[in-house]
Simulated scan of single mutants.
Amino acid sequence: MPNKRSPLSLAVVLGLAALVPFAVGVYVAWTGTSLDARSALRWLLPYLATVVAFIGGVQWGRMLAQRSAAPLDMALAVTPALIAWGALLTAAPWRGLLLLFALIAAWLIDEHGARQGWQKRGFLQLRRVLTLAVALCVIAMGWRVVRG
């Protein structure tokens, strides 16, 4: 008999796996390995932009699955990915700040989605934890760059 896992439990495992590059980035930034914090941020921030774009795709999928996607909600779901793309075209420190803003905006859109009924509460709790963990990792790395 196949092992049946709930989609949410699988999302928890995969979400934690997605945190690995951020944890590695913090480790690299604070341990003084061959890469410095600035270099670690340089390779991590495009990953963060990818994560933000992925979140928008998840939001669209949930809205479309509900078959009641409001045009404003669909536009909101795309906005963080556009901010993230723009962030990649800017220089430090704006790149990191804009990407953090995009991540938080994507989370707030998920909060809005829960109120609109297209985002599930269990998934929203996972998003809160993952968003906080990612934001703290990026802030820790940025702090290391600023403070040396």
Score class of each variant (00 low, 15 high):
Arg95Ala: 05
Phe101Leu: 13
Ala81Glu: 01
Ser68Ala: 12
Leu99Phe: 05
Met74Gln: 06
Val24Cys: 12
Gly113Leu: 03
Asp36Asn: 10
Val26Phe: 04
Val12Glu: 14
Leu45Cys: 06
Trp143Ile: 13
Ala87Gln: 08
Ala75Asp: 07
Ser68Trp: 03
Leu45Tyr: 05
Leu103His: 02
Gln66Tyr: 00
Arg121Pro: 00
Arg144Asp: 01
Val138Pro: 02
Gln119Ala: 04
Ser34Trp: 05
Ala70Pro: 04
Val51Thr: 10
Arg5Lys: 05
Met63Ser: 00
Leu98Glu: 00
Pro71Thr: 08
Phe123Leu: 10
Ile104Met: 09
Ala105Tyr: 04
Gly15Tyr: 15
Trp118His: 06
Ala81Phe: 05
Thr31Cys: 04
Ala105Gly: 03
Ser9Met: 13
Trp118Leu: 02
Tyr27Cys: 15
Asp36Arg: 11
Val58Leu: 04
Met141Asn: 07
Phe54Lys: 02
Gly32Pro: 01
Tyr27Glu: 11
Leu136Glu: 11
Ala87Ser: 12
Arg42Trp: 15
Leu136Pro: 03
Pro93Glu: 00
Pro46Phe: 10
Lys4Gly: 08
Leu126His: 07
Thr90Ile: 10
Val13Tyr: 15
Ala106Glu: 00
Leu108Asp: 06
Gln59Leu: 03
Pro71Cys: 11
Asp110Cys: 03
Leu41Phe: 05
Gln116Ala: 15
Thr90His: 11
Trp60Arg: 07
Arg42Leu: 14
Pro93Ser: 05
Val13Arg: 11
Ala69Asn: 04
Trp60Gln: 01
Ala65Asp: 05
Trp85Lys: 07
Ser68Gln: 13
Ala40Tyr: 03
Asp36Glu: 01
Pro46Gln: 07
Ala69Glu: 01
Ile139Pro: 01
Val146Asn: 02
Ser34Gly: 05
Val20Cys: 14
Arg67Pro: 04
Ala92Ser: 14
Pro46Ser: 11
Ala69Pro: 02
Arg95Lys: 14
Ala87Met: 11
Ala84Phe: 09
Pro80Trp: 01
Pro93Trp: 00
Gln125Val: 04
Trp118Tyr: 13
Lys120Met: 04
Ile109Glu: 00
Leu136Asp: 10
Thr50His: 07
Met141Lys: 08
Gly32Ile: 03
Val51Met: 12
Ala70Glu: 11
Pro21Lys: 10
Leu45Arg: 05
Gly86Ile: 06
Gly148Thr: 09
Leu82Asn: 00
Leu76Ile: 07
Leu126Asn: 08
Thr131Phe: 00
Ala102Cys: 09
Pro46Tyr: 11
Met1Pro: 14
Gly56Trp: 00
Gly56Asn: 01
Ala77Trp: 00
His112Thr: 10
Ile139Phe: 06
Gln59Trp: 01
Pro71Val: 10
Gln66Asp: 01
Leu97Pro: 02
Tyr27Met: 15
Leu132Cys: 10
Leu98Val: 04
Val52Leu: 08
His112Ile: 14
Ala92Leu: 09
Leu132Lys: 05
Gly142His: 07
Arg144Gln: 14
Gly148Arg: 12
Ala102Leu: 06
Gly25Cys: 05
Pro7Glu: 08
Arg67Lys: 14
Val28Ser: 06
Ala87Asn: 08
Arg128Phe: 02
Ala91Glu: 13
Trp107Ala: 02
Ala29Thr: 07
Ala23Pro: 06
Ala49Tyr: 09
Leu64Val: 06
Leu124Met: 04
Ala37Asn: 05
Leu108Phe: 11
Ala29Gly: 12
Val146Ile: 15
Leu89Trp: 13
Ser68Met: 06
Ser6Ile: 10
Leu126Ser: 08
Ala84Asn: 11
Val52Pro: 09
Pro80Gln: 01
